[in-house]
Structure formats: C-alpha cells, structure tokens
Amino acid sequence: MIIIFINNNVLERRKRLGLTQAQLASSVNVTRRTIISMEKGKYTPSLLLALQLAKVLETDINNLFWLGGGESEKSNH
C-alpha cells in the first residue's frame, strides 16, 4: 500500500518570522493545538487553511507544503 503524506515547513517559516504558535493560530483562526499538530506533521490542513498559512507566513503554498517522502524531497524546497 502506498502511503502518501504531506510534509511542511510551517515551523521553520514561523520561527523565521518570529511568530509564536499562539500568534500564528490567532491569525488563521485556529487553535494553538492545531498549529502544534501541524508542525509535528500529524495534521494535514485543508486547502483553505494551507492558503491562509502561506499568506500569513509570506510564502508560496508549494514552499510550505509538499507531497511527502523522505528528507531528500524536503531539501529540494
């Protein structure tokens, strides 16, 4: 069975912009727990939330989320 998952660098982008989890959560109207879960890679956000995050984190959605695999794919972004 092929397992497809989504990688993200929300944590890196958030830290680069100096935002706290609570600030990011507040700016996209979600709970802090959702941001934590996303940063751990446990939760895959909806397209709407992903687009909102990309806007707040001042990046392109493709740089924030990408189809998962190993570290090699992540390093391409």
Partner: peptide
C-alpha cells in the same frame, strides 16, 4: 456553543 454541545469545534481539526 451550548446549542452544539459536545459537537462544538474551535477549528477544522476539532
């Protein structure tokens, strides 16, 4: 929300 009770959700994940 009292009307939604246990189905109240703070965001899409909840």
């Amino acid at each position: 929300h009292t009307g939604e009770g246990e189905l109240s959700a703070g965001d899409e994940r909840e």
